[in-house]
């Protein structure tokens, strides 16, 4: 694969997109991966899903294990640097590639420019559709009242706030109700939620209260980690609210059970 010269504001007609599925989507919820492929292909992208991808390295990076994080970063760079764009259905993982890889490799003369080049063409899915492709998507209708959680990395590292709301506005029948604290962390934080489960519980309870107060039937977000945390707590509390990745709704792929639901639950 050859390097293409393109810029965010001027994408090629049919860009070559490398899909960084993220480990959670890959292992836990492939339907988000398929929804992402559909959204990108519908928007005119040629999508590849390299088999040599694993994880972006955040568990190591955020635990202070920079040596392993650097090795993992180099693997991701090698696998993905040939594409016009790298797209991930996660603000957290996209932020890792686009913000933290250059920092991790800043003292490595050979890898720093490669990290920076990858960073410049890495995007979170919804931001990519909206800001780069300015795609005219036409998602199918979904009769539901939904609320949206702004995941921390997407919101504060990548500035994703209006984009998912704009796209959800095109879903006929979907009524979006905002919570009081959509920007407050849900208490996931990667390994934080298992290292400090009781603090995490207090945080996710505040989120759950806010979500339930909206009266929404469906919780949407752009990061599977946060969604699994919030859905897991909502289910533990016996709440009926369902949780899905925003890509599933935008791609019209909501036939699979929601996060943490069995087939019977949604029948």
């Amino acid at each position: 694969m050859t390097e293409h010269s393109s810029s965010p504001s001027n994408p090629p007609a049919s860009p070559n997109v490398g899909l960084f599925a993220t480990c959670l989507v890959d292992l836990m919820r492939p339907s988000v991966g398929f929804a992402t492929v559909k959204l990108l292909e519908d928007a005119g992208c040629r999508v590849s899903v390299p088999e040599a991808q694993t994880c972006c390295g955040q568990p190591a990076y955020n635990s202070g294990d920079s040596a392993d994080a650097r090795d993992i970063a180099k693997n991701v760079i090698q696998v993905f640097e040939g594409f016009d764009y790298v797209v991930a259905p996660s603000g957290s993982c996209a932020g890792m590639l686009s913000h933290h890889y250059p920092h991790l490799l800043k003292d490595d003369a050979a890898w720093k420019p490669r990290a920076e080049a990858l960073a410049a063409k890495t995007f979170e899915l919804v931001a990519f559709l909206t800001d780069v492709l300015q795609a005219e998507i036409s998602p199918p209708d979904l009769d539901v009242t939904a609320t949206y959680h702004d995941s921390c990395s997407g919101l504060r590292e990548l500035g994703i706030k209006s984009q998912p709301r704009a796209l959800l506005g095109k879903v006929g029948g979907l009524r979006l109700v905002e919570g009081d604290i959509p920007e407050t962390c849900c208490g996931f934080g990667g390994l934080f939620c298992v290292k400090y489960p009781d603090i995490s519980e207090r945080m996710v309870d505040a989120k759950a209260d806010d979500i339930l107060a909206t009266g929404a039937d469906l919780l949407l977000a752009g990061d599977l980690g946060c969604l699994m945390n919030m859905a897991g707590r909502l289910k533990r509390r016996g709440a009926r609210v369902e949780a899905r990745h925003v890509a599933e709704v935008l791609a019209g792929m909501t036939d699979r059970p929601a996060i943490g639901e069995a087939d019977e639950d949604t029948a």
Partner: peptide
């Protein structure tokens, strides 16, 4: 994980 919350099963 499962102290305070359920763990969604993989698909």
């Amino acid at each position: 994980w499962t102290g305070p919350r359920d763990l969604p099963a993989p698909q």
